[in-house]
C-alpha cells in the first residue's frame, strides 16, 4: 500500500519498494526521490540498516578452518578409476574367452549325435541287406535264370514241365 506523505516525501513502504526495485512506487515518487536529498538520505539509511545487519552477521560468523584442496583425493580417484577400467577390460576378455571355449565345446558335443545317426543309418542298410538275403538268398546272376521278363508263366505249367519232388513221389506211389 502506498502512503503518500503530505509533504511529498517518500513513505517507509515506498523506500522499501525502491530498495527492492519492485517498480511499485509511483512516477511522482520516483521524480521526487531524484530531486529530494532528504529522501535520498532516508533511502540510504534504510538500506544501511539492512546492510548493517548483514555485516554484523558476517562479523559474527566463524571462518573456514582450512582451504579446500583437491590434491591427493583426485589422484587417488583417477588411479582407482584407471584401475577399475583395466579390471573391467580384463574381466570382459576373460568372459569372452570362456564364452568362446564353451561354444566350441557345445559344437563338439553337437557332432556326436550326427555320428550316431550315421552309424544307425549304416545299421539299417545292413539289416535291409540281411532281410533281402533272407527273402532270396540266390545270387543275382542266378536269379535271372528262372526269370522271364515280360512273360507271365503259369505256375501249373512250370509244375507240369518240371514237376516238384513231392509230385514225383506221389506218382511213384500210384
Amino acid at each position: 500500500m502506498i502512503e503518500q506523505r503530505p509533504d511529498n516525501h517518500l513513505s517507509y513502504d515506498e523506500l522499501l519498494k525502491v530498495l527492492a526495485q519492485t517498480g511499485g512506487e509511483t512516477n511522482q515518487s520516483r521524480d521526487h526521490l531524484q530531486s529530494c536529498i532528504s529522501c535520498q538520505q532516508a533511502l540510504k539509511r534504510v538500506e544501511q540498516r539492512f546492510k548493517h545487519m548483514g555485516n554484523m552477521a558476517r562479523q559474527l560468523s566463524p571462518k573456514p578452518s582450512s582451504p579446500f584442496r583437491l590434491s591427493g583425493k583426485k589422484d587417488a580417484y583417477t588411479r582407482w578409476h584407471r584401475k577399475s577400467i583395466w579390471v573391467t577390460g580384463l574381466a570382459a576378455a576373460a568372459i569372452m574367452l570362456m564364452t568362446a571355449w564353451f561354444t566350441q565345446q557345445a559344437e563338439q558335443n553337437s557332432a556326436l549325435p550326427e555320428m550316431a545317426m550315421h552309424a544307425i543309418e549304416q545299421d539299417r542298410q545292413l539289416m535291409e541287406q540281411v532281410n533281402a538275403l533272407v527273402d532270396n538268398a540266390l545270387p543275382a546272376k542266378y536269379q535271372n535264370l528262372t526269370y522271364f521278363p515280360g512273360i507271365k508263366i503259369d505256375e501249373d505249367l512250370i509244375n507240369w514241365i518240371v514237376p516238384s519232388i513231392d509230385e514225383e513221389k506221389d506218382n511213384s506211389l500210384t
Binding site: Y12, L16, K17, L19, A20, T22, G23, G24, F50, M53
Partner: peptide, 21 residues
C-alpha cells in the same frame, strides 16, 4: 520480478525487528 516481490515482503517483515537488533 518474483525475486523483487519476495525481497520487498521480506524487508517489510524484518523491519519490525530493527529496534531489538
Amino acid at each position: 520480478s518474483t525475486i523483487k516481490t519476495h525481497l520487498y515482503r521480506g524487508m517489510n517483515k524484518v523491519k519490525d525487528h530493527f529496534g531489538d537488533m
